Amino acid sequence: MNRTTTSLLAVGLGVAAYRLAQRNNWINNRTMKKMRRRLTKSIF
């Protein structure tokens, strides 16, 4: 697996987890910002 595939997979998983958490109202905005920062750092 190359880097592009891995990052795409990570994005897909992140989006799925984010949608699930949003639907179940698990996370607040502060957690979301932290998660988004970690995601962007891991991708770029």
Rank of each mutant, 00 (worst) to 15 (best):
G12L: 12
N25C: 02
T40G: 00
T31N: 04
V11Y: 06
R23T: 08
R38E: 05
K41C: 01
A16S: 11
G14P: 00
I27F: 03
R36E: 12
N2C: 11
T4C: 01
L20M: 11
K34Y: 08
A17T: 08
V11F: 14
N29E: 13
A21K: 00
A21P: 01
K34V: 06
K33G: 07
Q22D: 15
L20G: 02
L8E: 10
M1N: 06
N2S: 13
R3Q: 12
M1W: 10
M35K: 01
M32V: 09
R23V: 03
Q22S: 14
F44S: 11
L39W: 04
A21V: 00
K33E: 13
R37S: 12
T31W: 09
N29H: 08
L39K: 02
T4D: 09
A17R: 05
T6M: 12
A16I: 07
T5C: 02
Y18E: 02
L9S: 13
N29S: 13
V11Q: 03
R3S: 12
T6K: 13
M1Y: 06
Y18S: 07
L8M: 12
S42G: 02
T5K: 10
G12R: 10
N28M: 01
Y18F: 12
F44R: 13
K34S: 10
K34W: 14
V11M: 15
M1E: 08
L39C: 05
L13V: 10
R36T: 07
K41S: 06
F44C: 06
A16L: 15
Q22V: 02
M35R: 05
L8A: 11
N28R: 08
T40R: 15
L13I: 13
R3C: 01
R30V: 05
W26H: 04
T4H: 04
M32P: 00
R37I: 10
N25H: 13
A16T: 06
N2Y: 03
V11L: 15
W26P: 01
A21W: 00
T31V: 11
N24H: 10
R23I: 03
R30L: 08
T5E: 15
A16W: 09
T40N: 09
